[in-house]
């Protein structure tokens, strides 16, 4: 029942709407502006003498990306199901002979295209500008890694956004839920873990539980992967050498992050299948 043509039709439709209502331009400009500002600021203080200038910028971008990519993904996705219910187009789509999972896959593909364009323009262009200005010739594989993993991070939060959208019937409630997901995953989660670290002061929690809890969050897994892959240590990032004390390298966070896509999508599909338009 899941047909590629159905998925593609929904994906193209979402992308077209994204282009028409200026979402593509809006997201690209936001990412580009933030990335350029960060690149300008990040290059100023020390550390630049140890490492490649582009690498430092990429580390800064990865830190920015943790906040802003999930936010854009959730903004793109919170309305995807609830909005169609409100506008009466979902019953129309579901009355057609297509599988419900095709709707989720199609929307993911369309929104991911919007997000990917924004990320490639925003981060890619910034990376290129920095490299050209600093006269760098290496480090581009790190840039590519940043772009790809940012897209993966976006996909995870698109899936979470669809889940929120399908769970509640109304667009406004879905928006509130999406903001909640964002706050918890990129702000509160880390705060709580930090609190645990401070209280525990090097005990069982800090050494054994904390690393796993940290990686469990897709946003943190993304950051862990990019920092570990850059292999900068504390100097360039100011992150107090967090990743050096973790029990694994770059591969596990990457696998985990990718696995989150499947998890988020399965969640979205299973919630969407229970929607009664």
């Amino acid at each position: 029942m899941v047909k590629w043509n159905h998925i593609l039709a929904i994906a193209q439709n979402e992308f077209l709407i994204g282009v028409r209502n200026r979402w593509v331009v809006f997201a690209s400009v936001i990412l580009l502006v933030f990335a350029l500002v960060l690149a300008g600021v990040g290059g100023a203080p020390g550390g630049a003498e140890y490492v490649n200038r582009l690498t430092v910028t990429i580390a800064s971008l990865a830190t920015l990306s943790v906040y802003i990519v999930p936010l854009i993904a959730l903004l793109l996705s919170f309305d995807a199901i609830a909005g169609e219910v409100e506008r009466g187009t979902l019953p129309l789509i579901l009355a057609s002979p297509l599988a419900r999972s095709s709707v989720i896959f199609g929307k993911l593909l369309g929104h991911l295209a919007v997000l990917a364009i924004a990320i490639i323009i925003g981060f890619g262009l910034t990376g290129l500008i920095v490299a050209v200005l600093a006269g760098e010739s290496g480090g581009f594989e790190s840039l590519l890694r940043l772009l790809l993993t940012s897209i993966v991070l976006g996909a995870v939060f698109l899936g979470l956004g669809y889940s929120a959208s399908a769970l509640v019937g109304q667009s406004s409630t879905a928006a509130a839920l999406a903001i909640g997901i964002w706050l918890v995953s990129v702000v509160f989660y880390d705060l709580v873990l930090l609190g645990g670290l401070v209280t525990d002061a090097g005990g069982f929690f800090s050494t054994t539980v904390f690393p796993w809890l940290l990686m469990a969050n897709p946003a943190d897994a993304y950051r862990l992967y990019n920092m570990a892959a850059l292999d900068l240590g504390a100097n360039a990032t100011g992150l107090s050498g967090m990743q050096t004390s973790l029990p694994w390298g770059a591969v596990l966070p990457l696998l985990w992050l990718t696995g989150w896509i499947a998890g988020a999508l399965l969640l979205a599909i299973s919630v969407f299948k229970r929607v009664q338009p």
């Binding site: 043509n5 159905h6 593609l8 039709a9 929904i10 193209q12 439709n13 077209l16 709407i17 028409r20 209502n21 506008r87 009466g88 187009t89 129309l92 789509i93 057609s96 002979p97 297509l98």
Partner: peptide, 19 residues
């Protein structure tokens, strides 16, 4: 039913034809 305002009639028809 409220079709996407920014799409043309033809685009909407093509979309549903594919579905």
């Amino acid at each position: 039913v409220a079709f996407p305002e920014t799409l043309t009639g033809r685009e909407i028809m093509h979309f549903f034809a594919r579905l």
